[in-house]
Design a protein around this nucleic acid. Structure first.
Lengths: 350, 350
DNA sequence: CCGCGGTGGTAATTCGTATAACTCTGCTCC
DNA sequence: GGAGCAGAGTTATACGAATTACCACCGCGG
């Protein structure tokens, strides 16, 4: 009803009739099919008619005919919900679009029934592949149906090892963070981790391992009293930072295994009247854009390369073929701001 | 290759062959079509064969035949990127799913070409409707193509008035926030707004109007010196709060037009050695989940009902029909935490 | 012995597009 | 002057599911 010609149901037959040619001609001309020859006059008429009628190809008919759809499924336990992980979709969507593909997204919120049902729906839409994304890095069980189509696990690892996975390089991140603090001259470096290291949480395990490696490499003996476990939230950072600084031998620097924890530590230090980085240095992890740059002083932290990871997931899908279950690790670059300085007085180690 | 029967290309004909019946029978049985009668034995065989072969309906064939697809397009200038607006997608997706529909999402990042192209793609997929969502509440120009399909504008208003819009009730929010402060006994209430009120930013205009109305209703004369304009960021909150408190007659309470601004104010007050809410009370706006609950003390703020707004957008789409360009406003409930208390000393007004 | 109604199912068509195979008209060339 | 061929299109079919119209069979009444 909008413009005269833009009825939603305009088909190639309508265009053909308007241009006075056959439907096949319309198809061939509009798709600029290779190896066919039509007079300039005919091409002109077809294009004119198509434009006039507001013709738009019916994607379903095309898919039915060609067998493969221009869509990729993106299932996550969060997708939209998580504040910072939006980047991961942004990257995926951008890359998909470059390949002319649309993203069919569902966030299950952890609901396994919804997950199964939406995967079924996606498969009936003949998606070219499925990205199975997780909010945080862990080891997870991938639904069997995904084996029917190219799939990749994003920001987590597939326990069964059937699917290619993409994950951040946690250990190196932990190492880099700690090394940065060591290089600034710190010797008593605490770590407030996110949750227990029961092996199901590669972020916690890896970051801590990197922390230990850096310490060891510097010839330092890790003080168990400086290693604490929060829950990845502000309160965990707050409580643990408070306990740490009130202890007998407080650290001169704290590595917080995520930015939220670091924020809690900021609040604790502020409450104790300690200044950052003068009295104590801090390094975070995640480079959460709503947080890290806006703390005072700005938080030095490690960036989770979500944009690239999202892009890469689609890339792998498109490459298809190989389909081994190997994991591709992404390095987390250090982004320096102003929460790290040299310690006040060096607690000499000999 | 996974399980024997789960080839991706299993069609009704395959099932029919396996069950020893016709394709029509398979269709009728599987869809449990009304008014048809098949023997129990036949039904059983059909279901068994379908299950055995891992049959899954081809959505494209169905759409082609039936004309309407089980998908809704969701286009945004952000979609994933914005930290808190994820809720809006979550709500939309949940409601869509209840209706058996999938969401086809694209975040354009403001790129108009991408926007146009993805709308075209969505329309070729015969989406049942399109939600056109914006990151922040404003007045925007909606692409003409949207007129071809049921569409609704989410978290913004359509300038042309052709499409139904859904937006938060900013004025009432500003009023509620201010009233809350008045009720606590405050008389000198400042406001740090987000950006200029040039009419293109309903959030800024509305929240300020509500602030003025509440003041007027309380018989107070707004002090222009207490009204400041930030940029909606932390730094705007920081700088303006600092200026406000260092002024000749500092306020006893500040209404910050968003949570990020409020956070900046927290930092400024902390720097000045002022405590919240003892020395000054604060109210924010947005109830940003990564921020408001984690500030110390927790920030009293107004919630943007994104989940409901997202749901409602889909609801309107499904209702279709009417299609007037009216705007539906959503109330922003006050969520009380601990940043508001009675003022220290009342600056009596007579 | 024919017709009739009910039961249980099937054949054929439709949706919109892509494409392989085919037709028809001129023209050239020997 | 007919073979051959290039040029310009067309016809027909397939993709997978839904649906309408139809058909075959059986038992029974008249």
């Amino acid at each position: 009803m909008t413009r005269p010609g833009s009825r939603s149901g305009t088909t190639m037959n309508d265009v053909a009739a308007a241009a006075g040619v056959s439907q096949a001609t319309v198809s061939l001309v509009l798709n600029d099919a290779a190896g066919t020859r039509f007079s300039e006059e005919t091409r002109r008429r077809v294009h004119a008619a198509a434009h006039e009628l507001g013709y738009r190809t019916n994607a379903h008919a095309k898919v039915l005919r060609d067998g493969v759809a221009g869509m990729i499924g993106f299932v996550g336990d969060f997708v939209a919900t998580a504040p910072f992980a939006g980047k991961i979709i942004e990257g995926a969507q951008a890359r998909a679009w470059e390949a002319g593909l649309l993203l069919l997204t569902v966030n299950t919120g952890g609901d396994k029934d919804l997950e199964a049902a939406s995967l079924e729906a996606m498969l009936s839409y003949k998606v070219a592949g499925v990205v199975y994304a997780a909010m945080y890095h862990r080891v997870l069980d991938v639904p069997d149906v995904l084996a029917e189509v190219p799939s990749v696990v994003l920001n987590s690892r597939d326990r069964s090892g059937r699917f290619p996975s993409i994950a951040p390089q946690e250990e190196l991140g932990g190492y880099t963070a700690t090394k940065h603090l060591l290089d600034a001259g710190h010797r008593r470096i605490a770590m407030i981790n996110i949750g227990a290291e029961d092996g199901e949480l590669p972020a916690a395990v890896g970051r801590h391992a990197g922390y230990l490696r850096a310490l060891k490499e510097a010839g330092l003996n890790p003080d168990p009293g400086l290693h604490r476990i929060g829950e990845g939230h502000e309160s965990g950072g707050f409580d643990n930072a408070l306990a740490l600084m009130r202890g007998p031998q407080p650290p001169t620097a704290i590595f917080c295994a995520n930015d939220r924890t670091a924020w809690g530590a900021y609040q604790a230090l502020s409450q104790l009247g300690l200044s950052i980085p003068h009295d104590v240095s801090l390094v975070g992890f995640d480079n959460q854009e709503t947080l890290a740059p806006h703390l005072r002083p700005g938080l030095t932290t490690l960036e989770l390369p979500f944009l690239e990871m999202g892009r890469r997931a689609i890339e792998l899908l498109l490459a298809g073929a190989e389909r081994d279950g190997s994991t591709e690790y992404f390095e987390c670059p250090l982004v320096e701001r102003h929460s790290v300085a040299a310690p006040l007085k060096t607690t000499s180690s000999h």
